[in-house]
């Protein structure tokens, strides 16, 4: 069971208070009506699904109800950082190797 630092509450809480919501930083296209079926399908369903560093969206569902992002290693399950919506992660895919 994960121990998750909520960047809004400012403390670690048990995973049972949170829901995982999938890949982070998926921006809804500015003009959906201009998207092709392929572009829209890509937005809806297609995911990076990496083994290793992954940025994912979580919500502190039974807590402050805030959504925030987690950078986590999907192999070791280590949480490397959590940050608020609108903030940028310190770790990005290009620093992936540093974590291995």
């Amino acid at each position: 069971m994960f121990y998750i630092y909520c960047p809004y509450c400012g403390e670690h809480r048990e995973e049972e208070e949170f829901h995982a919501k999938g890949q982070a930083h998926l921006a809804r296209p500015e003009d959906p009506d201009a998207c092709s079926d392929e572009e829209w399908g890509n937005f809806l369903y297609f995911r990076s699904n990496p083994r290793g560093l992954y940025h994912e969206l979580w919500v502190h569902a039974i807590g402050c109800r805030k959504f925030f992002n987690i950078a986590r290693d999907t192999q070791t399950y280590e949480i490397l950082e959590t940050y608020r919506i609108g903030e940028s992660p310190n770790l990005s895919q290009s620093t992936e190797q540093l974590q291995s």
């Binding site: 829901h19 919501k21 969206l57 919500v59 569902a61 109800r65 805030k66 959504f67 919506i85």
Partner: peptide
């Protein structure tokens, strides 16, 4: 409610 919050917080803050 979670759905509404998701859109408000992540898409249209």
């Amino acid at each position: 409610l979670e759905w509404l919050e998701l859109y408000h917080q992540t898409e249209w803050p």
